Amino acid sequence: MDFLINALTDWLKEMLVGGIMSNLSGMFDSVNQQVADISVQVGQTPQGWNGSIFNMIQNLSETIIIPIAGAILAFVMTLELIQLIVEKNNLHDVDTWMFFKWVFKSAAAILIVTNTWNIVMGVFDVAQSVVAQAAGIIGSDASIDISTVMADMETRLMEMDLGPLFGLWVQSLFIGITMWALYICIFIVIYGRMIEIYLVTSVAPIPMATMMGKEWGGMGQNYLRSLFALGFQAFLIIVCVAIYAVLVQGIATEDDIIMAIWTCVGYTVLLCFTLFKTGSLSKAVFQAH
């Protein structure tokens, strides 16, 4: 009877240990790949990220949005002229300089609208240059490596009782699902940011048409702030990855495999949280009054 119980116990142990090793093997590969891809993705300009989407957005902006921006520009500058005249004591104190001022502002507004695409892309070129320099300075290995911890793990697991082994198997299964969820979160942040950039730049001529207006100028200024926030969000993302890389470097020195894995999960969750926060942080920096 004891022989059967021991044989069944050994069989269950082998099954649980095999399941645990299978769950842990390659668990962090997808996250490592996605984290390594972050620096490449955020360091690209809208044109470099996807040329086909870039050309489509540029075509939409120039053929559909610019005519609308022209109409808005005419309205804003006409309103600006009316306000300049009315402000001077109901036409009793009208100076010729105000018309030169209005002509200059109108010419500047037209120049801004006709060169909106170059201005917008210039913002992202500057941001990309900053990100490239930052990546070169703080670049480090952000991959999670627990191979040294797992070297003699199978032997140690076989020495454990069935109860703790079953608990470890459940934990390894849950951690595997969690890492896939974190992989998806990182994907959403990085690719969602680029899609947001394309959406924001597609309507750029409309807010830029209001830049020279006295009352409407705030729309254009806020748009430029949000544009800089989007561009330099990539810099904050690079800093987040650099901090994450420093944190995970000490994982391989852990003696407790489960503690090491849960530490990895905690760091990755922290990375995802900070990546989500970079958008609001960059906007808070550039839009603070």
Rank of each mutant, 00 (worst) to 15 (best):
G163A: 15
I238D: 00
V248M: 03
C185Q: 00
L162Q: 05
G231H: 06
V241E: 07
A108R: 00
L111S: 14
A69L: 08
G122M: 04
N115A: 12
G18Q: 08
F100E: 08
L199D: 00
V248C: 05
T9K: 11
V269Y: 01
G167L: 13
Y191H: 12
C264K: 01
A288D: 07
Q133H: 12
Y183P: 01
S280Y: 12
T148V: 04
L73N: 10
M160S: 13
Y191P: 04
I206F: 00
M27A: 12
G122Y: 03
H289Q: 04
G192S: 09
I237P: 01
N23S: 11
L4S: 14
T63G: 03
V113R: 07
I237H: 01
Q233R: 13
I20M: 03
M211D: 00
S61V: 01
A204G: 04
I138K: 03
V241C: 07
W180H: 09
T78R: 02
A142M: 06
S282M: 02
V265E: 02
G250R: 08
M27V: 14
D2F: 10
I186N: 03
K214V: 09
T201N: 09
L8I: 03
I195P: 02
G51R: 14
W49Y: 15
M160L: 10
N32H: 08
S282E: 07
N32D: 12
I261H: 02
G163W: 12
V40A: 10
G176Q: 13
N50Y: 13
H92R: 15
A107T: 12
A242K: 10
V170R: 04
H92T: 13
K283H: 09
G26A: 08
V203H: 03
L224F: 08
H92Q: 15
E80H: 07
V94M: 01
V126D: 05
